[in-house]
Simulated assay, not measured.
Amino acid sequence: MAKLWTNSRGPIPASDIDVRRAGAINALLVSPLEILPKEPGDPVRPLAVGIWHEIRPLLKPGIGTTVLRKAMGSYLHSKRYYLASAQPDAMRHDLDGRPVGEISDQDRLAAQESFLTLLKREGKEAPEPTEAPVVIAAPSKAELIRAALLNRRASSAPAN
């Protein structure tokens, strides 16, 4: 199992190609998405899960959803989008660019692996970690319940 990155690189700035991809998406919509970068250097922000259902109704009349899916896919499967999604402090955002929740460890790991795969295809080396990576395992539901019950018992136990 690969290990999650523990050091954040901060906001990932959009490149010229990211801005062109975002512009291609916005050109298909009746109103531009605030979450997408408008110029190089703007942050690349991961989208909220299920946001497609909010974007699709914004499609201009006469344009098929396949065209929008391809434009979105080009942006979402880019190296910088994967890198932004793999950051330890990465957040998902709504259409207006407001944070709506953290990216799950599972999604971060998938983004990290996709980023590294794209780097490898380009013949580039993976960045060296500055500290030992840590594998984060989410506690199971049973472990969470057990911990809550133990805390309740410990706080209600009589003092000697």
Score class of each variant (00 low, 15 high):
Ser114Leu: 08
Ala110Pro: 02
Ser15Gln: 03
Leu116Gly: 06
Ala48Gly: 11
Arg69Asp: 12
Leu118Ile: 12
Gly73Arg: 06
Ile12Ser: 09
Met1Trp: 04
Glu143Asp: 15
Arg92Lys: 10
Leu83Val: 03
Ala2Tyr: 05
Arg9Asp: 14
Arg45Asn: 09
Ala126Gln: 12
Ser104Ala: 05
Ser156Ala: 14
Pro37Phe: 06
Gly64Val: 01
Gly101Asp: 06
Lys79Gly: 07
Leu118Ser: 07
Ala27Arg: 11
Pro32Thr: 13
Arg20Gly: 07
Pro139Asp: 11
Gly101Cys: 00
Leu144Thr: 04
Ala148Tyr: 00
Glu125Gly: 02
Trp52Leu: 05
Asp18Gly: 03
Ala84Phe: 00
Arg9Gln: 14
Glu39Asn: 15
Ala22Thr: 01
Val67Cys: 09
Glu34Lys: 13
Ala132His: 01
Glu102Asp: 05
Ser15Leu: 05
Glu128His: 12
Ala157His: 13
Arg92Leu: 06
Pro46Ile: 02
Ala110His: 04
Pro43Cys: 11
Pro11Ser: 15
Ala86His: 07
Tyr82Gly: 02
Leu28Lys: 07
Ile103Gly: 07
Leu4Gln: 12
His77Phe: 07
Leu76Glu: 06
His77Gly: 14
Thr66Tyr: 10
Thr117Phe: 13
Ala90Met: 04
Thr65Asn: 10
Ile136Thr: 15
Ile35Phe: 09
Ser74His: 05
Glu122Gln: 07
Ala27Asp: 14
Ser31Ile: 03
Gly41Phe: 02
Pro133His: 11
Ala142Lys: 11
Ile145Trp: 12
Ser15Tyr: 04
Pro32Cys: 11
Gly64Met: 02
Glu128Asp: 14
Gly50Glu: 07
Pro40Arg: 03
Leu95Gly: 10
Ala126Leu: 03
Arg56Cys: 02
Pro88His: 13
Asn26Thr: 10
Arg56Lys: 09
Lys38Cys: 06
Ala14Gln: 04
Asp105Ala: 11
Ala154Leu: 14
Asp107Asn: 08
Ala14His: 11
Tyr75Arg: 05
Leu119His: 00
Gln112Asn: 06
Gln87His: 02
Pro158Ile: 10
Glu113Trp: 02
Glu113Asn: 04
Pro11Ile: 08
Ser155Ala: 15
Leu83Asn: 07
Asp107Leu: 00
Leu36Gly: 13
Ser156Arg: 14
Met72Asp: 06
Pro133Gly: 12
Gly73Asp: 14
Arg108Asp: 01
Ala132Lys: 11
Ser104Arg: 02
Leu36His: 08
Pro57Tyr: 01
Pro88Leu: 00
Ala86Ile: 01
Arg92Glu: 09
Glu125Gln: 15
Pro61Leu: 02
Ile35Arg: 08
Ala142Asp: 14
Glu34Gly: 13
Arg21Trp: 00
Arg21Thr: 06
Ala148Trp: 00
Lys124Gln: 15
Ala86Gly: 08
Arg56Pro: 03
Gln112Asp: 05
Pro139Leu: 07
Pro133Met: 08
Asn160Lys: 04
Ala24Glu: 10
Arg9Val: 10
Ala14Cys: 09
Ser78Asp: 09
Leu29Pro: 03
Lys70Ala: 11
Ala147Phe: 01
Ala27Trp: 05
Ala132Cys: 02
Arg45Tyr: 01
Pro57Gln: 11
Ile55Gly: 08
Ser156Met: 14
His77Tyr: 11
Thr66Phe: 03
Leu4Arg: 08
Ile25Ala: 09
Lys79Pro: 02
Ala84Gly: 00
Asp18Gln: 08
Ser156Gln: 15
Pro43Ala: 07
Lys120Phe: 06
